[in-house]
């Protein structure tokens, strides 16, 4: 007798993950795109067991240093853009290589090979994200926002904003306001 089966690899993988994580009593949440959020610290022994039992299904935990370094670059940039009251005055390349102890060239290569963008572009995206938040909060004028984010002028802020969103800051604000009105009605 011959059986014909069809199967959905992604569902199968999710079920395996659930079963194994539950068996080891690890608190988890399955996210999209091959990501799992672990809520508590997992003892090294349990982690090794998880790695081994998933390995039998050819499921590997990506634990490489490259991925970790990229995450550190992103975290450093986000911290720089959000938590400092003003962006550092040294060049960003110096700032990153000092903080992470790698040459900027090395960081830049690893980043652009794995994230579909460059460090420079990622910084611009993050700065525009912060500008969006500040525009919506309505506490600062565009001039004050451009000063806070280290832009030399409002014109320069607006042109980077336009580069990332395709919109002017004022059109962006109008869309957000109209959307809110629409959802509140």
């Amino acid at each position: 007798m011959k059986l014909y089966i069809n199967f959905d690899g992604i569902t199968a993988c999710r079920v395996i993950l659930q079963e194994q994580l539950e068996r080891l009593e690890i608190k988890y949440q399955l996210l999209d795109l091959g990501e799992i959020e672990i809520s508590d610290e997992v003892p090294a022994e349990t982690f090794a067991e998880l790695q081994q039992s998933l390995g039998r299904y050819s499921i590997n935990i990506v634990n490489n240093q490259k991925a970790q370094l990229i995450q550190k670059i992103k975290d450093t940039i986000v911290e720089m853009v959000y938590e400092k009251d003003k962006m550092p005055n040294t060049t960003i390349s110096h700032y990153l290589s000092d903080k992470l102890n790698f040459s900027y060239g090395h960081l830049a290569n690893i980043f652009s090979e794995n994230t579909y963008t460059s460090i420079e572009n990622f910084i611009i995206i993050q700065k525009v994200e912060r500008a969006k938040k500040l525009i919506i909060e309505e506490e600062l004028t565009l001039t004050e926002i451009s000063y806070k984010l280290n832009y030399s002028s409002v014109a320069y802020l607006s042109s980077q904003f336009k580069k990332v969103t395709g919109l002017t800051p004022s059109m962006f604000k109008r869309i957000v306001d109209k959307r809110r009105k629409l959802t509140n009605n």
Binding site: K74, Y116, T117, F122, I125, E129, K132, T165, F172, V176
Partner: peptide
């Protein structure tokens, strides 16, 4: 992908090209 992979706010994700 940047919005997806870096946890950016999708509610204010606008991109006109």
């Amino acid at each position: 992908w940047q919005f997806h992979s870096s946890g950016l706010n999708k509610e204010t994700f606008f991109f006109s090209i």
